[in-house]
Every structure is written in C-alpha cells, then in structure tokens.
Design a binder for these strands. Structure first.
Length: 265
DNA sequence: AAAGGCGGCAACCGCTCTTAC
DNA sequence: CGTAAGAGCGGTTGCCGCCTT
C-alpha cells in the first residue's frame, strides 16, 4: 500500500468559528474534549503517520493512540475522504460522469456502492458531485435526477431514447450474462451496457470483519481477494421477486439484477 | 470597491448494519 | 438468541470563496 501523501491535494481550512456542533443535534459520542470542524495540517500529519505505522484499525481508539483530540468517526472520515493516498482528487471526467449517472439509475443514492465502481473516488465526493453538478446536468437533459425518467412536458419515448444515448457507457463496462443474473433480457434493462456484476472483495487490512458494505466502500481503492455477496439485501428487496440470487448455485453471490424502479414496481 | 447572493464541498449527525460475546 | 459495541452510510449543515450587481 502506498502512503505517499499528496499535500497539495489536501484541503486545510481554518477551523470554523461557530462549530458544526450548533446544528441542533445531540452529540453521538463523548465530545467534551474533542476538536471539531476543519482539520489542521498537524492533525492530518498525526493521523497519517499513525495509520502508516499501525494501519487502519479500531477507529474508536485510534484518536487517543494517535494523540488526536478527535472522535473516531471524524478520523475515519478524514482518512477515507481526504488522506488516503490512493485518492484521485481533481475534476471528474466525462466518462466518470456518465458512469455515475448510470450507476445512480440502478442503485439510487447508494453512494458507497457507486464509489466502489469509481477507483480513487469516495462516496462523499460522488455525493457532493451529484448534488452540485450531475443533478443540474440531468435536468438540462430533461431527465429527473431521482427517477431517471423524462420530465413530463416532453414526449416520453423521445426522452428515453435521449437518455439512453446520453448514458452510453465506456466499453470497459460492458455487460455480461452474469450481470443479468437470472436471465433478464436486454430489452428489460435500460442500462444494459452497465456491468452490474458488482464483485465485492474483502479488505486485506481488516481480516476480522467481512462486512459487505465495508468491502464495497473500499473495494475501489485496494487490491483484495475476491468474494461476492448478494446486493439485493442492501437494496432492500432481498427475497423479493427482483432477487433471483436464491436461484443461483452460489448463495453468497451478490448481484443487482434489475433497476430499482423495476424491482419495486 | 463594497455588498450580497450563490455554489461547492468538508465535516457533522443520527440511523442502520454487522459482528462478537 | 439477545444485546452491546463498533463501523459505515446517507442526509444535512454551514463556512469559504467566487461571481454578480
């Protein structure tokens, strides 16, 4: 694993004067003696050097061990979203844009799953990018960003064609029979060129746990040994008609078979 | 040049899920 | 089997900085 920290890519803002703790919610953990707001360069250096030396481990105890006055969740977020050495940063490419749109069409607001298909990108980054850029982009195309359906005032068939053309994927994301999981025909799936065989692998740094969600969120950034799990549960329709993983010979294989809307109808 | 508005994004929160005991 | 703890996720907030007036 590389640990070359790109200092130019890391944002250091001055700590917020008012603090985000004034947002009206009760603290989720003991925060009487913890810092909040923007991370300082010194804090970043402490966190990076600690993880360099000890790896990612128990986030709860990490702050104390690393000499940080932060809560574990804050450390985790800072590491995952900004300090991890394998992050891309920088502008999203057109191909990334289109891939995000396609994945969102299938997965909905499952940012961590989407991030899993975009190496070097984080869920938070994608979520922000979606809200600030892609939503507008889709609206400009006459497409509802939430439903991915044409906005009513235009003829639907024309818009569907437009949308399909707009989200035409890069060739490396070609589909496979496996991705269709159960034999959905190409006519059934609007994002047919999207590879939905979301193979999930386990983090090498955390052998004691094998959470699908964890593996998904970090799958894009590390090389793990492959292990696949059923996505239907994550998407809320495990066991429903939409989930035909139960029909497969491998009960632990996880796939998205149909777009969410279709599955929920 | 100053003021106000707006967009971008870092960071927080509560909730949910998974695992260990 | 039930419960607690830890970790991750998605939604939300609010500051910063750029742009417009």
């Amino acid at each position: 694993m590389l640990f070359a920290l790109s200092s130019q890519s890391v944002v250091h803002r001055e700590p917020r004067r008012t603090g985000v703790g004034n947002m009206g919610r009760s603290p989720c953990c003991e925060k009487a003696h913890t810092n909040k707001g923007a991370w300082t360069k010194e804090e970043d250096e402490k966190l990076v050097s600690y993880i360099k030396a000890h790896g990612e481990g128990c986030w709860r105890s990490l702050p104390k061990a690393a000499g940080l006055l932060r809560c574990g969740k804050s450390c985790r977020l800072r590491w995952i979203n900004y300090l991890r050495p394998d992050l891309k940063r920088g502008n999203f490419t057109e191909e990334e844009d289109e891939l995000i749109i396609k994945l969102h069409g299938v997965l909905g607001n499952k940012w961590s799953l989407i991030a899993g298909r975009l190496p070097g990108r984080t869920d938070n980054e994608i979520k922000n990018y979606w809200n600030t850029h892609i939503k507008r982009k889709l609206l400009g195309r006459g497409i509802d960003p939430q439903t991915h359906r044409p906005i009513p005032q235009q003829p639907e068939t024309a818009m569907v064609q437009d949308m399909t053309a707009a989200v035409k994927a890069p060739t490396e994301y070609s589909s496979s029979d496996e991705a269709n999981c159960g034999g959905a025909s190409q006519d059934d799936v609007p994002y047919i060129d999207l590879n939905l065989d979301l193979s999930i692998s386990l983090p090498h740094h955390s052998p004691k746990r094998a959470q699908p969600s964890q593996a998904l969120s970090s799958a894009a950034t590390s090389s793990y040994s492959p292990a696949t799990i059923c996505l239907c549960r994550h998407l809320g329709f495990q066991g429903s008609e939409a989930c035909s993983c139960r029909n497969t010979a491998h009960p632990n294989v996880l796939r998205v078979i149909r777009p969410l809307e279709e599955a929920q109808n």
